[in-house]
Design a protein around this nucleic acid. Structure first.
Length: 204
DNA sequence: TTAGGGATTGTCT
DNA sequence: GACAATCCCTAAA
């Protein structure tokens, strides 16, 4: 197994978010394997970020897993969907994480179609990709990276990374304007994709 | 092709 | 009872 050094998740969450782009997420769930290359992420900077679930040190049953350290994942549910975060920071003082919003399917595409109940738009949104690769809050919230169920390894390299405003946080005042969403420019597997995909989907 | 609103479910106050 | 880091269908240009 080619393992990845996750120490880049220790300190700067926004910088770590950009480094996750292109890495391959793989899950082994219900006896089948699915995976994809990360195309879209958003950084949530914990205590001082009004859009973060942990703004001001708020702690509830829903978000308590965000206080774990880097190397764990945080899964929450809303509107009947599940969303997945890669946690960052070395201690309980940094309840920060990176929301995975889009991946490009690479393994088990037929299984994703079956889980989604459709043939298109399998992984171009945070609730869609968790359904495609079989992640849910009950079974996977708080688990560690790179075990028998969930792993991340080196994948592709983005040609260009485009910073944008985050999506779905319109009520969060000044945090609306922070450029903490990063996408692989030209890749169609991102939320609200418009226009035409790049010839190479934005990979080097 | 894009914009708008209803669906839907667990969690918090 | 209200809200949420969403999704999907419909309507109209």
């Amino acid at each position: 197994m080619n393992s990845v050094d996750f120490s880049f998740l220790k300190t700067d969450t926004a910088a770590a978010a950009k480094q996750l782009l292109g890495m391959e997420i793989i899950t082994h769930i219900d006896g089948v394997t699915t995976g994809g290359y990360i195309t879209e992420v958003e950084a949530y900077l914990g205590l001082n970020d009004k859009a973060s679930h942990t703004y001001g040190g708020k702690k509830t049953k829903k978000n308590e897993m965000m206080y774990r350290t880097y190397g764990h994942i945080y899964v929450y549910s809303m509107h009947g969907h599940h969303c997945m975060n890669i946690l960052t920071g070395e201690s309980e003082e940094t309840p920060e994480g990176i929301l995975i919003r889009g991946i490009e399917p690479s393994i088990g595409i037929d299984i994703m179609k079956k889980r989604r109940g459709r043939d298109t738009h399998l992984t171009d949104g945070p609730g869609k990709l968790t359904q495609s690769i079989g992640i849910n809050r009950i079974d996977h919230n708080g688990m560690t990276l790179n075990n028998n169920v969930f792993s991340i390894r080196a994948g592709k390299t983005p040609k260009n990374i485009l910073p944008t405003k985050r999506i779905g946080i319109d009520s969060k005042e000044e945090a609306v304007d922070y450029l903490y969403r990063f996408i692989v420019e030209g890749n169609p597997n991102v939320s609200r994709f418009k226009g035409r995909p790049a010839e190479d989907y934005g990979w080097k």
